[in-house]
Design a protein around this nucleic acid. Structure first.
Lengths: 246, 246
DNA sequence: TGTGGTCGTATGGTCTGACCACAGATGTGT
DNA sequence: ACACATCTGTGGTCAGACCATACGACCACA
């Protein structure tokens, strides 16, 4: 009988964690909203019955998650203020875990394909003329003869981010940005190593044109298929062993 | 001319941030890997030339991101050790930012559709017999007459997570888990409020069967279409004004 | 032989109190 | 009025102490 008992380890709660949970609960319950300000650290620590050091450890975690902003001084920007700035946090998180091999390139590519298919479908349904104009500009920048590989990659990133932005979905945008940022070094390195760069660049630009045309014309199914093939094709060209390496 | 100069604000580096970046750089450069151990806090702080408090704030952030584990004592689990446990961090992040309205329900649904379409496509290509057996069990649990709405939701979550797991893609899995966790309260509330629950439940179970059949048979395109319709359908039934509300 | 207790030691966990740096508010002198 | 100095409240950092934990080494007693 005793074999089956689940003696799951009791986990001790560290002080900073209790504080963190308390603040998170207030946020999740809706009692703390963006723009609200928490008490000054010394007062807050006293109210919670913990030291300022422990409180600060909790606040640091919230800050790193983009949920609060800490500012010195006495003005409007001072104190601990609830914010909603997920970008840096998400990017940092993904970059770290890519480096730690929590996620590898294949996994990122498949996730990207899924996310961007949703993006272009939505973009095809609701992209504005300005969205299309902006992306057209980016395309022209990428097609320029003299553009460096690094500049090309950054324009490419901006193009895909703009697609997500045209979908008016912040989660898709932020994840697209974070994924691109986390693979940027690997992408640049693969581009440098690629032996038929001009050719590949031409292919990618063609892909982009086709995707943008489909989005601008509202052809969602085409756009989905094209973006899926584009991402997988680019990945295969850059990372699969083959003609790219000698 | 001076108008166009980008005087992007020099952001003061707080000590803890410098430490954080230093550790992250080592991780990204591959010089710190999972299982490696950082120096003891007092030594590390001395080596970096900062106070223990500042160092700890940086370590807390890394801990919250699932990149390190801190343990007391003298054994193998003691000290500061590099880990790769993204789950809790991602779930907490998403839950917080859903509460802060960084992302709303529509955005989550569209992202979910994209991610799960990738999941089922991969699952259809590589799901094992055990994967299918496991999901079949979950389906039977969901179809049981006496199952509560909460239990149904948890089984439903497990089913979708199992699909992602069958795709053998950790990023898809973790994101699916995090998204489900972040919408769980809203989902439960909507289920409680729904007026034709038995009917909806029957529909959802039918959807699941069809998805699993398609996955098991390797019909990736069908599986994709089915899961997309399933998610959007469930969302519409639960959250759109209409027959569900009186 | 081994079982259990005690102590030493290294680790993170927490607290206290102090001082610094910064930015707005307030006062003061011209 | 305006320019400047000072005050005050905020986070930022530090040093040092002590607590709690976990392991290893040793010892006492069966």
């Amino acid at each position: 009988m005793a074999d089956t008992i689940d003696w799951s380890p009791v986990q001790r709660s560290r002080t900073y964690q209790l504080v963190l949970e308390k603040v998170e609960q207030q946020i999740i319950a809706g009692r703390l909203r963006v723009g609200d300000r928490l008490p000054a650290e010394r007062d807050f620590a006293a109210q919670l019955g913990v030291s300022r050091a422990s409180l600060r450890e909790a606040l640091r975690v919230l800050e790193a998650q983009g949920a609060v902003r800490l500012g010195v001084g006495t003005g409007q920007d001072s104190g601990t203020i609830i914010t909603a700035l997920p970008r840096k946090a998400l990017t940092r998180f993904l970059r770290l875990h890519v480096a730690l091999a929590s996620f590898d390139m294949d996994e990122l590519v498949d996730a990207r394909i899924g996310l961007e298919r949703s993006s272009v479908r939505l973009a095809a349904q609701q992209a504005t003329a300005e969205d299309v104009a902006r992306m057209t500009e980016l395309l022209e920048g990428m097609e320029a003869k003299e553009v460096s590989r690094e500049a090309f990659n950054d324009l490419d990133t901006e193009f895909h981010v703009s697609l997500a932005a045209a979908a008016h979905n912040r989660l898709l945008s932020e994840m697209t940005i974070a994924i691109r940022a986390s693979v940027r070094p690997a992408l640049l390195e693969a581009m440098e190593r690629h032996q038929h760069w001009e050719e590949l660049k031409h292919t990618l630009c063609g892909d982009h044109r086709a995707i943008l045309d489909a989005v601008a014309a509202g052809r969602a199914d085409d756009a989905e298929r094209l973006v899926s093939e584009h991402i997988r094709g680019a990945y295969l060209a850059l990372f699969s062993p083959g003609p790219g390496r000698s």
